[in-house]
Amino acid sequence: MTSSMTMDRTTDAATGFLGTRPEGSRMTIMQSFSDLMHQRQERETHKRTRPVETEVVAKLDVRNLNFFYGEKQALFDVSMTIAERSVTAFIGPSGCGKSTFLRALNRMNDIIEGARHNGTVLLEGQEIYAPDVDVVALRKRVGMVFQKSTPFPKSIFDNVAYGPKIAGQRNRKALSEIVEQSLKRAALWDEVKDRLQDSALALSGGQQQRLCIARALATNPDVLLMDEPASALDPASTARIEDLIFELKQNYTIVIVTHNMQQAARISDRTAFFFQGYLIEVDATQKLFTTPTKKQTEDYITGKFG
């Protein structure tokens, strides 16, 4: 997955860490991840979701992506495929490029001045950076949820109905239908169905974040990008969001950036580890957390740095 150039550079940087690390602590951490995986597998079997490894359809296919903010290069030659109807998690220390990569998938970086790239990003085989691609149409199909919940200062209903409305849906009845379905999918319906006209700002933090997910679902996307969606929430709300992501993956392709490795281990099918703008390793989550092939990955998940 990673180019040889990347390898040389990062291996040198990481060897220093390995020498001083007591072997025992590493084993316990690995063990705890292994337990986590085990718990998860139980949950998956219980829910009878399809086994991840049989997924073959590539929803997103990124090849040799380099990304720059002005003079500064943020991503170095990243290639990755993201499978349909799965959860892919991006982990890595802050500033490693995982958010940049996520935002490159629906061209949110276009808004930033001086941002440029080379390489290819294919959505179902179509280059999303091609000059004839309508970025607005792209963002309708690749939705996004942000770290900080960003409800519009409007009613709950208007928040969810906003996407369909601007897409031209004027029929009040159809809108109510979409709002109800989206809120149900986001597991928020029962809590807000009696106060749809209340201000969205009155909701709790966890509810606001689920509202933002509902809002993104209302535009009927195929892919849902989530940039640390639970990092500002309390544990109970986080658990709800994680359950929700689990439900959503039956219908959507989900890509999630998280700074929390336990979270990645709990919810994702595949995990990608970014470091200093390079994609170090991407693999099935269970494999990455229990038997990482790269030393940097191992250092990171055992808490040596990050």
């Binding site: 808004i111 792209l138 963002r139 939705g143 942000f146 900080k148 933002c212």
Partner: peptide
């Protein structure tokens, strides 16, 4: 700016974002 970005992420055009979100706010 989070309001603008959230609106773009929902597939709103620039003018739709300004008209429906930025100017009302």
């Amino acid at each position: 700016s989070s309001i603008r970005i959230a609106s773009y992420a929902l597939g709103a055009t620039q003018w739709q974002t300004i008209r429906h979100q930025v100017i009302p706010a």
